[in-house]
Amino acid sequence: MTFLNFLISGISLGSIYAIIALGYTMVYGIAKMLNFAHGDVIMVGAYVCFFAVARYDLPPALGVLLAMFVCTMLGIVIERLAYKPLRQAPSLAVLITAIGVSYLLQNGAQLLWTSSPKVFPNFFKVADQTGVKLFDGQLNISYVTMVTIAACVIIMLALTWFTGKTKMGKAMRACSEDKGAAQLMGINVNATISMTFAIGSGLAAIAGVLLCSAYPTLVPTTGSMPGIKAFTAAVFGGIGSIPGALLGGLLLGVIEIFAKAYISTQLSDAVVFGVLIIVLLVKPAGLLGKQVREKV
């Protein structure tokens, strides 16, 4: 039964990683850049939701929507101001700019909201219960966990539909394959890239709210470690692939929780990254990534 408890919390943590990893993977797929500022967009989303609900007493649903709106706008603005001028620049220059944006968001948040930790409220209560107990209280499933897993499944299905069926989604796939050819076919490449950033950042807001509901301390650096883990998850599953982000995120979450439970709390990060290295040695392009063969 404890095993099942750990498995469920692993899947729940993994779902959060998966939602964050989606943002990384989509942006990487289309703009071929590692968006290091993504983790900090999560933090901004969590703060917006926190203030909307805890300070201004808005209903939680409205708080989440507001956070999504703010993050989407933030994503578009960041892309327009910092990344778009560097479209032709070497990838390292873009990487450093992304790091600059990440510092900017973290330090901006510290100035605006101070570095004292905020305790994130738990929205997910039914009749003052935070979860359900099954099998005489041996199996605890909190509502946060249920909502997280459900959100992850819904987002995944919606994105699969979006990239597969809609015109915008097809444009995205075309751009990620060949930007020049896509432009020749009349696709607005800049708008498509902006759209990708918007979706990724909107998802980051959801991830931020879910993350802080499960682990309720909110500080300006909240997003950075989950950001790195989710980035790892995206690579784990094969960066650029949407199902890969889901698989990588879930596996990473489950491995992390199991390592914490059965090996050592302090060494859990080492175990997670160790597994990543072994996987990449066996499958150098990640679990679901495509091996691109070099042509001479």
Binding site: A82, L86, Q88, P90, T97, Y103, L104, L111
Partner: peptide, 20 residues
């Protein structure tokens, strides 16, 4: 308090200008 903020902005601007 603003120094790290300034540092970040300087970093971004330098990257934007050198790659313009």
């Amino acid at each position: 308090d603003y120094r790290m903020l300034v540092y970040a902005i300087v970093l971004i601007l330098v990257m934007l200008f050198t790659n313009n």
